[in-house]
Computed example of a mutant assay.
Amino acid sequence: MLKNQVIVITGASSGIGAETARLLSEQGAKVILAARSLDKLEAVGRTLKGPYEIIELDVGSDASVGHAFEQIWASNPRIDCLLNNAGYGRFERFVDTTVSEFEDMMNVNYLGIVRCTRAVLPRMLEQGGGQIVNVASMAGKLATAKSTAYSATKHAVLGFTNALRQEVRGTGIVISAVNPGPIDTPFFTLADPGGDYVKNVGWMMMKPQRVSKAIVKVIERRKAEVDLPWIAGFGTRLYQLVPRLADKLTYKFINKK
């Protein structure tokens, strides 16, 4: 099903971006690896079984996104799927987080998705189909202490995703969200440099292969959304039903940062 499809992956230099690229390549897709580090992208590319391109891309820059997608469109007549995966987090108390840190995180995690989506959606509308997959987070549904900036960006991503899905209904374009819990990737090198959070949630931390397999299924089946792991998905549903009661009952369990 994915053979010969052209799939762009942002944040493809490590973690679930790199792992998803490998899985998609095994299924015959042409993968376009995009991130800031060309050296890391080249290393990922050498592990792929099928055709690929590497593109230098900083999702936080209008100019970089514009230039990168000009290159992509110049060498590819169509893009079948855009996987918006680039992002980062930093877990700290609100009173210790500067306004500039809020701005930077929102610029990358949310506006980065907006920029890349604007770069592909008009062409997808012209070609009559395609898919945009946004990697959000369970933090976009269930916010926790010390993640005010990060959770806000992921709430924004989910709001954007859900609204855009309604806008393009009937066009042949699928808008998807993948909402993972904690993943064992380099993400936590910056987000949790002390390692306390990783230690506290180690029992439920997922391997990147598990998340990448879920992303590939979303692309294969053109699903609208997936939450993982299941226990986290259950928790968000409970929270949506009785948010204040859930706050009281789950505070100690979920606030592990």
Score class of each variant (00 low, 15 high):
R123L: 05
P182E: 05
G172E: 08
L190V: 14
V211F: 02
Y110G: 00
R118T: 04
I183N: 00
G194R: 02
R169W: 11
Y88L: 09
M205N: 07
W230F: 15
R115Q: 12
D196A: 15
K146Q: 11
G202W: 03
I173L: 14
N134I: 10
M204S: 13
A163D: 14
R221T: 12
R123V: 09
R210W: 06
I219M: 10
L228K: 08
K199Y: 07
R123P: 03
R210E: 15
R93S: 12
K154S: 01
Y110V: 04
G194H: 02
R222C: 06
N179C: 15
T98S: 15
K213F: 00
A143L: 07
G181S: 14
T189S: 14
S176W: 11
T97Y: 07
M124P: 03
C116T: 15
Q131K: 04
Y197I: 03
G195D: 04
G128H: 11
V135C: 06
F91K: 01
V99K: 08
T117L: 09
K141H: 14
V99D: 13
F160C: 02
E101C: 08
V198F: 00
I113G: 00
C116W: 07
M105N: 08
C116S: 09
N134M: 12
D104M: 13
N107R: 13
K154A: 02
A232F: 15
S147P: 00
R210M: 15
E92Q: 15
R93Q: 14
V114S: 02
S212T: 10
V216W: 04
M106G: 00
W203A: 12
G112P: 05
K217Y: 12
N179A: 10
K146L: 14
K213P: 01
T171M: 05
F94S: 12
V133P: 03
G202I: 07
R210I: 15
F187C: 03
P182R: 05
T153I: 01
R221M: 13
V226Q: 06
K217G: 09
P229H: 08
G159S: 11
P229F: 11
G128I: 15
R123E: 09
V99W: 11
I175Q: 06
M204Y: 10
I113E: 05
R165M: 07
T144I: 15
V218G: 01
S212F: 06
T153F: 00
Y110I: 08
S176G: 11
M106T: 06
T144D: 01
I173D: 06
